[in-house]
Simulated assay, not measured.
Amino acid sequence: MNESAPRGMSVRAFAGTRLIARGAPLEVALAVKAALEDGETAPVLVFDDRDASPVEFDLRGRAADVAARLAADAAWQAQSADGDETQPEAPGEDAPRGRGRPRLGVVAREVTLLPRHWDWLAAQPGGASVVLRRLVDSARHASDAKDRVRASREAVHRFMTALAGNLPGYEEALRALYAGERARFEAWSVDWPEGVRDYVRELAQGAFA
């Protein structure tokens, strides 16, 4: 399996434009293996339900071999994630003001600014670190909605390019997607194979905010 499978990950498999399995990676991998062994001739593609990115399974050997490889991938990813340790914040202007105050998730890193930026930060209440955190949070909140729309559209486009490129209304549906016109998007995709139609609509939930 080229793509690792995080805990709780959900994927979907299509043979051509026909949905053949959905669910946890192992469940879908075994369903794909069974379909291929039963003579499935259509190209089989698997997608990560989070963003429609492609997922590849190593289906060699018996079902137990496939399960063992997936389990090893999941264990490796979990170990890698646990190995990311945050560094304690270096003492500075906004060091904790009370014995035992926790520094949860705080990471000390170098920030390079021009003198006028440092002058402005020094004049703000709370110190440079507090002000920078506040500015970053404000910028994140301002861009969250746009980021969700963009991510949803990219996921739909990725999936449509892979499976719906030859379906009637593909180009019109794609234009409606980027124009933010949900009714037109759904109208152009209404006659697509059920699994494809339902999946693009699911992926597009955040595309029309």
Rank of each mutant, 00 (worst) to 15 (best):
F159T: 05
P115N: 04
Q124D: 06
E202V: 10
A139W: 07
A68R: 14
D58S: 14
W192K: 10
F47S: 08
A64W: 03
T161E: 10
R109C: 11
V130R: 10
V156Y: 00
A81M: 12
Y170I: 08
D73I: 03
G195W: 06
A183P: 12
V190D: 11
P96N: 09
L167N: 04
V111W: 02
V11I: 05
V136Y: 03
Q124R: 15
I20G: 08
P91K: 14
T17K: 04
E40S: 10
D51T: 11
H141T: 13
L114V: 02
A176G: 09
V106C: 01
P6N: 06
A183G: 08
V55D: 01
A122L: 06
T17M: 01
R69G: 11
V149S: 03
V190M: 11
L113E: 00
S189C: 12
E37G: 15
E181F: 04
L45M: 13
R18C: 00
A42F: 01
V28E: 02
V44A: 03
A155F: 04
G127R: 09
L167Q: 08
A42E: 12
A164E: 00
E40K: 13
V106N: 02
G127C: 09
E40G: 11
D51G: 11
V66F: 03
P91L: 14
V11N: 00
A5K: 05
G206N: 11
K33T: 06
M160H: 02
A63K: 11
D191S: 15
V136P: 00
V32R: 02
R175G: 09
V130W: 00
G23T: 03
E181N: 15
G39A: 06
R150Y: 06
A24T: 08
L121I: 09
R175I: 07
A155W: 00
E27W: 02
W192E: 06
V32M: 05
D94H: 13
T112R: 15
L113C: 06
D191T: 15
R22D: 07
H157T: 12
S143L: 14
R99I: 10
G127I: 04
G105N: 12
A52F: 02
A173E: 02
D38E: 13
A151N: 10
